[in-house]
Design a binder for these strands. Structure first.
Lengths: 262, 262
DNA sequence: GCGACTTTGTTCCTGCGTTCACAAGCGGCT
DNA sequence: AGCCGCTTGTGAACGCAGGAACAAAGTCGC
């Protein structure tokens, strides 16, 4: 993976995300006080998968599926069925034994867990090729993330509408973000500009950042950064490819001199 | 995280034993010829980080840094120094005690491990907004991944040059991929087209796929798929945001249907 | 040349995440 | 109504990855 999660870099970045105690609550005490769900600590990895499940579910609903078993669901999502059930248990037990899960209800609960009840406005910074594409990306608004601000430093771009939205100068970022209630910033600038832009986003009050620049950003502890490095993705594929077809690194070794006949 | 890796999800694996004896295989290193160097099992997570280290290293070299300690390096890469050293040990022990690592040599060895000695040609399928951006993305060729083929199904696009490369019709994919030695396919199509396109890539002999469509692809076991779902990234950020402030999925009572406080 | 300091490489340990397997629960069938 | 089979939910075991600490090793100063 590579979309690397390191909000607070270093240290325990992978700690379970939940805030409440790791509680093993006895099944008996669960008289279902509906107001207070027993929110267990949700592992980071599970959160990522839940988002995927959500996507798969909406596709299924479109196809008219109203109920699905964990086995089928797992196959569609490409995971183990036990893992899927455990992941779903983090959002609460909403399946029906002997039957499966109600797709519509499940969507509802996952969305709630992920905090999607509230729509998050997105600002895209750096309107180059990639920024352009993201500004027009239908998957963002379709899934509850309307793009409401575009920023660039290039004077020639200011005011030009991209995807129906005019580009603003980055100097106006604090004001514009506040005004439009932006909560997520997306960085699509060249590498050198990424850190300054990041700082600017932070001072604008943004605490969630999606970074496409191949740079490790330094941010305060309360800011969450996710990095998507496209070239890194390819490099990981490259690793597997070379592993698969025996193209081993030792054979190509000019230094170590152990030329291995493979 | 979301770039989901699931070519073969790790089966039974043996603990990476000490050092020198070969044939300790884990899910990652299996399927390699024997008779080799002490290539230890490299965890998937470590591969991803190594790619990041590579990027950080090249930046440092540009700045004239020739030697670096694990401590500084770790800070720049945003990881724990012990973890970094362990990761680097997977590529072999090339540091100098009391001094640190030689940046140039390190780059060389990491590139070898990742199989970057050989350049991988990339084909982009689906020349919409995102496909356009990726075809022009400088980070691909800069890091050893030249884009050598573009495909779309839209007749109006065929022949049009994008980033200096004319678009081909997907029907010609097998021939073109073979001719140009394409090893990696990138899917930027709408969701509905992703699976058919994926099948086409596989029959064209491509075994490494980077998928930007929000769909879980079904592929044969020997094909490696990595998924980058942009909306999922935002959803994960959304989760953390809602956790941080007002974590109110409990307040938004599922049953009672109490209005969510916005 | 020798000692001391610095930094690596590794080993051990702890903890999370995944998987297995089974009991509990629900619907359908007779 | 009661039984049977199916599916969920979870307790427990296992394997893997991360973190701390230490020993080997090499360099710099004297």
């Amino acid at each position: 993976m590579t979309v690397q999660h390191h909000g607070r870099y270093g240290a325990d970045a992978v700690r379970p995300v939940g805030d409440l105690r790791p509680c093993v609550e006895s099944a008996v005490t669960r008289a279902i006080p509906a107001a207070r769900e027993p929110v267990r600590a949700v592992p980071e990895a599970a959160v990522a998968r839940l988002a995927v499940y959500l996507r798969v579910l909406t596709l299924m609903i479109e196809q008219g599926v109203t109920t699905i078993s964990s086995e089928e669901f797992a196959a569609a999502a490409g995971v183990n069925s036990a893992k899927l059930r455990k992941d779903l248990s983090y959002v609460g037990s909403h399946g029906t034994r002997g039957v499966g899960y109600d797709t519509a209800r499940l969507v509802e609960h996952i969305e709630r867990l992920l905090g999607l009840a509230r729509h998050h406005s997105v600002a895209v910074v750096g309107i180059g090729n990639l920024g352009h594409a993201l500004a027009n990306y239908p998957g963002f608004p379709d899934r509850g993330f309307p793009v409401t601000a575009l920023f660039d430093i290039d004077e020639d771009l200011i005011g030009i509408p991209v995807g129906g939205l005019p580009v603003d100068h980055i100097d106006s970022m604090p004001a514009v973000c506040l005004e439009r209630g932006v909560t997520i910033g997306v960085i699509c600038t060249p590498p050198a500009a990424a850190q300054p832009v990041c700082d600017l986003l932070v001072t604008s009050g943004i605490r969630c950042i999606l970074n496409f620049a191949p740079v490790v950003l330094q941010v305060p502890g309360d800011v969450e950064v996710r990095r998507v490095d496209l070239a890194v993705e390819l490099q990981i594929l490259s690793f597997h490819e070379s592993r698969r077809c025996g193209n081993d690194e030792a054979a190509a070794d000019p230094v170590g001199g152990i030329a291995v006949s493979r």
